Each structure stands twice: as structure tokens, then as C-alpha cells.
Simulated scan of single mutants.
Amino acid sequence: MRLVRWLNKNNYYFVSETDVIEYYYNGKRIPSGAVWLTLDDGWKENLFNVIPIVNQYKIPITIFIPTGIVENDGIYWWSLLQKSRDVLQIPYSEVFKIPEKERRKLVEKVRFSSNRQLLRQAVTKDDIYNLSQYKWISFGAHTVLHPLLPNCTEDELNYEIIHSCETLAQWTKRPVNSFAYPMGKVDTRAIEVLKNLGVKVAVTTEMRPASITDDPFLLPRVSVYDGITNAEGIANVVGVWPRVIKMIKRI
């Protein structure tokens, strides 16, 4: 992961999940240029392209895990649907707008009718347990099946959050202190559930650096997505790219 190497070489200070919690709840001082490194979804490829450098430099990192996907076949439903558009009964973009119950039915129908044979994409429970032995690697909850929470009923939302936190705590033998909203889709109903579970911070995909004035359950993040160039990644992290986008939107 070239971006992590660049940050390390240029003296950016990596902070842990614990540091972030202490910053928001106890006023812990964090130096300028601090970076909390997070990964969503638990992609198996991270074991080969991120974890080696994290372990080499002992860089703190938090990985957000959708427990149900890991427990099952390890195939991400959005990846399956992308590759099976020929059997989808609705446009792919509409999948993210339908009620969660309907989304689940659609995914199961595609699983049985599609001839797309996907290899496992997610890490395994054993991978998670093994990684949890490193003190600089922490895990946060990311629901069970990675639904869009605003599309969930009250019962579905509660299940997705509570069960994922409880399951992840069992796997890692650690308390779950952080949560990532799937696809960044925030649902304020989730905040009270998270607080009752003892979760301390939750992250979105709002693209900007975090500050002390942010709500710890609505923390922004700077995204480094698949296919991005190293230069674009650096521009995102140092805050240049979001400012450029804002300038363009004003034109």
C-alpha cells in the first residue's frame, strides 16, 4: 500500500481507535497530521496488500467487519449483483433504494439463478482471530449483512447492529468500540442502539478531515477507494482534493 508508506515516510502520525476515543471523550492531545487508518468490509486481499506493511511498521489500524458475510460464503452481495445484472429484475442502482427485506430476497434469488461463480472475497473468522492477536489491529462492527440502514425496519436495524457487535466481540475476545455505517448511509436511529451497546465512535463516508467539534457517532473520513492513483490518494488525505472539488462545484 504505497499511500501508507508515503504517510509513514513523511512523518504523519498514526493513531489507534483507542487514541480517537480518548481524543473525543477525555481531551487527549493528538498531534497535527494524525491519521486513523481504517478499512471497510474485511476484503481478503487486504491480508496481502495492507496487513504486511501494517505489521512491518506496527501501524494502528481498524477493520470494520460485516459478520454475516464473513460467516457465510464470503461473497459481498453488491459485488454479486454487479456481476449478475443480466438476471436482475430492476436496475442495479435501484437495489440501494428498496426495503431491506426486498433486497435480501433479491440477493437470494440472484444467488440461485445466476451462473456467476465468485470466489470468496472476505476474510474468514480464523483470519479475524489471528489478526486480533496483534495489539495494533482492532476491529469494528459493520452490521451483519451490510444493508443500508435507512432501508431497514426498527427490528432489522437492531438485529444488524446488536448481533454484529456481539458476534465480533466473541470472535476477537475484545469489546467492540467502533462502528462503520454501511456505504456511509447514516441512520440516526442507530446512534442510540450503538450507545446502549457501549460503542464509542462511528464513522461515515463524509469526505473531510475530522475535528474535535464533530459528533463522535458521525465522524467523517477521507476515502481512498479502489483504482485510485497514489497521487489522488495523497491529495485526498492531505485535504487538497476535497477543496478542489468544492471550488469546482462553485463554478
Rank of each mutant, 00 (worst) to 15 (best):
M1D: 10
M1T: 10
M1Y: 00
V4T: 06
L7I: 05
L7Y: 01
N8A: 14
K9P: 02
V15A: 08
V15C: 10
V20M: 14
Y24R: 10
Y25L: 11
N26V: 10
N26I: 07
G27P: 07
S32M: 10
S32A: 15
A34I: 08
W36N: 04
L37Q: 06
T38C: 02
L39V: 06
D41G: 11
W43S: 14
W43Y: 12
K44R: 14
N46K: 04
L47E: 11
P52G: 08
I53N: 01
V54C: 09
Q56D: 10
Q56S: 09
I59M: 08
P60Q: 00
I63M: 03
F64G: 11
P66E: 01
G68N: 05
G68K: 00
G68A: 06
E71Y: 00
G74I: 05
Y76E: 01
W77G: 06
S79D: 13
S79F: 00
L80Q: 11
L81S: 04
D86I: 01
D86A: 00
Q89N: 12
P91C: 14
Y92M: 00
F96E: 11
F96G: 12
F96K: 02
P99Q: 08
P99I: 03
R104P: 02
K105I: 15
K109S: 15
S113Y: 00
R116D: 10
Q117L: 15
A122S: 12
D127K: 03
I128E: 01
Y129R: 14
N130S: 13
L131K: 06
W136R: 06
F139R: 02
G140E: 07
G140V: 03
A141S: 08
A141F: 03
T143S: 15
V144D: 03
V144R: 01
P147C: 03
L148D: 13
L148W: 04
E154F: 10
E154Y: 09
N158T: 13
H163E: 05
C165T: 11
E166F: 02
T167E: 01
W171Y: 04
K173P: 11
R174M: 09
R174L: 12
N177Q: 10
S178Q: 03
F179Y: 12
A180S: 14
M183G: 05
T188R: 15
T188V: 15
R189H: 12
R189N: 14
R189D: 13
K195D: 09
N196M: 02
L197W: 04
T204L: 07
T205Y: 03
E206I: 13
R208Y: 01
A210F: 02
A210Q: 07
I212P: 05
T213H: 07
D215P: 13
L219R: 05
P220Q: 01
V222D: 00
V222F: 00
V224G: 06
D226T: 13
D226E: 14
A235D: 08
V237T: 10
G239W: 03
P242Y: 02
K246W: 09
